[in-house]
Simulated scan of single mutants.
Amino acid sequence: MTLAPPPRCDRLQPLSQGPLTRYTLFGRRTGLRVSEYALGTAYFGTGWGAGAEPDETRRILDRSAEAGGTFLDSADGYQFGESDHLGGRHTGPADR
């Protein structure tokens, strides 16, 4: 099976008008567009003794979304899992 090359991302319409509105395709076959810059979430939560409280996490995620950000760098080990929990709670279907 031969796959057609993906469309050029610079021709895709931005999802937002913010500064993070340059998108690229995530993988070769997913069809998902993500912002070229990812928001790191390692310090969302305070499980390691330092980091952003839930209200601050929400403000950071909201600001990233307003700017056009669609790509989060997350791992279940960040803040002993608290980072994933907060990110999921603030970006779930009820919010967006």
Rank of each mutant, 00 (worst) to 15 (best):
T21Q: 09
G45F: 12
S35L: 02
E36A: 05
G45E: 13
P7C: 12
F26V: 02
T30M: 09
R11M: 09
Y23P: 02
F71M: 07
T70R: 06
R29I: 06
S16E: 03
S35M: 00
Q13F: 11
I60M: 08
R63I: 06
L20D: 04
P19A: 06
T24S: 07
G51D: 12
G49Q: 03
A38F: 02
F71Q: 03
E36F: 14
G51W: 06
F71W: 04
R8K: 10
R33W: 02
A50N: 06
D76R: 12
L61K: 08
G51C: 13
D73C: 15
Y43H: 04
E36V: 02
R29W: 13
A50F: 14
E36H: 14
W48K: 13
T70I: 00
W48E: 01
L3D: 00
T2R: 13
S74Y: 13
E36I: 07
P6A: 14
D10W: 15
P19S: 11
Y23V: 01
D73W: 14
L3W: 03
G31D: 00
S35K: 02
D55H: 14
Y43V: 11
R59G: 15
G49L: 04
T46L: 08
S64T: 07
E66P: 04
D10Y: 14
G69E: 03
G27E: 10
D55L: 14
F26Q: 07
S16L: 04
E53L: 12
A52C: 15
L39I: 01
A4Q: 01
Y37Q: 10
T24C: 07
D76A: 11
R28V: 08
G40D: 05
L12N: 04
A50M: 10
R8M: 12
G31S: 00
P19Q: 06
V34L: 01
T24D: 05
Q17H: 01
R11F: 08
G27D: 03
L20E: 02
R33M: 02
L25G: 03
V34P: 00
L72Y: 10
E56S: 15
D55Y: 15
E53W: 14
R63M: 09
R8I: 10
L20C: 09
I60C: 12
A67E: 02
R11D: 04
L39F: 11
D76T: 06
G18C: 10
D55V: 13
S35R: 00
V34C: 02
P14L: 03
F26P: 03
T57E: 09
E53R: 14
W48S: 12
P5M: 08
F71T: 02
W48C: 11
G69D: 02
A4H: 06
Q17D: 00
F71C: 07
R22Y: 13
G47C: 09
A52I: 13
V34Y: 07
G31V: 00
G18D: 05
T57K: 15
E56I: 15
P6K: 12
L39N: 05
T41S: 12
E36Q: 11
G18Q: 04
